Amino acid sequence: MRQLGLIISHLFLLSWMPWVTGGNVQLTVGNGAEWGEWGQIDMCPEGHYASGFSLKVEDSQGGGDDTALNGIRLYCVDPNNNVNGDYATVESSVGRWGEWTPVKWCVSQFLASFMLRVEPLQGWGDDTGANNIKFNCSRSGAELEGDGMEWGSWGNWSIKCPEDAICGLQTLLEPPQGTGDDTALNDVRFFCCN
C-alpha cells in the first residue's frame, strides 16, 4: 500500500513537469480526458506571444449529445509593435459544434499558465470531456476564465512559462462518433517561447 502511494505521488509530480520539445517548454495538466487524437501544433509567428483567447463552445443540448468545449484560439501579439492592436490567431484541431466566444485579453500582458475544467467518464451517461479553461496572466497573475460549460471540476494549474509566455498549442480532439457519444476537445498542451 505504501509503495502504491509513492507511485501515485511520483506520477502526480511528473504531470506537473514541463516537457521540452523543439526548444519550447510544454505546459500540461493531469486531468484532461483521453479520447481522440492530438492535432497539429500551431505556433504564434516568431516574436509574438499569446495575449488573448477565445473558445468554441457548444451550449447544452438538453436531452441531446453534449460536447461542450470544441476549440481554443490564441490571439498572438508582437510586444514590440502592438500600437494598432494587430494580432495573429492560432488554433490546433477544432470540433464542428458550437460558436466562438468573445476574446478575453491579458491587457499589456501574456498568457502564462492554465487549468482545465473536465467532466470525468460518465459510464452510460453523456461524456463531454473538457468543458472550460482558465489562464493566468504573466505579470499581474490575474485569472481569465473562459465562457465554457459548467460540467466537471477544475484541475490544478500548470506550471508557469519560465520565461515570457505561451506562444502555441496542440489539442486532443475526438472526431465525430456518428450515432455514438461525442466529446470533441478533451485535452490541450501549450508551448512557451522566450
Rank of each mutant, 00 (worst) to 15 (best):
E91W: 06
E150H: 11
K134Q: 15
E163P: 08
V77L: 05
V77Y: 07
P120W: 07
N131H: 06
G36E: 02
P162E: 04
L169W: 02
E174G: 09
D66E: 06
G155I: 07
T179L: 12
F110I: 07
M43F: 14
G98M: 04
W154D: 04
D59I: 04
N156V: 01
D59V: 11
W157S: 07
I133Q: 00
D127T: 11
N82W: 13
L172E: 06
V57F: 02
F114W: 01
S113F: 07
R139E: 15
D65R: 13
P175W: 08
K104G: 05
L144I: 06
A68M: 09
R139P: 00
I133L: 12
E46D: 14
F53V: 01
S92L: 02
K134E: 14
W35C: 05
E58C: 00
D65F: 06
L173W: 08
N70K: 00
T101L: 02
Q61I: 02
G168M: 03
W38P: 14
P175R: 05
Q170I: 09
C106F: 03
G98R: 00
M115K: 15
Q109P: 00
N80K: 14
D78G: 06
G155M: 04
P102N: 10
W97M: 10
S60Q: 12
T179E: 13
D59K: 11
C161S: 07
V90T: 06
G152I: 00
T179N: 12
D181M: 06
M43R: 13
S93N: 13
C44R: 07
G146E: 10
I72L: 14
G123T: 08
S113I: 06
S51L: 01
N136K: 12
W100T: 11
F135Q: 07
Q177V: 07
V57P: 03
S140K: 10
Y75P: 05
G71C: 06
P79S: 00
Q170T: 13
A165F: 07
E174R: 04
C106W: 03
D42P: 10
G148R: 08
D65L: 09
Y87W: 10
E58H: 04
D86N: 15
D127Q: 01
I72V: 15
N84T: 12
D127W: 02
S153Q: 11
Y87T: 01
T101E: 02
A33W: 08
R73F: 00
C167H: 08
V77Q: 11
C137H: 09
S60H: 14
Y49P: 09
F135M: 01
E34G: 15
G180N: 09
I72N: 07
G98C: 02
D59E: 14
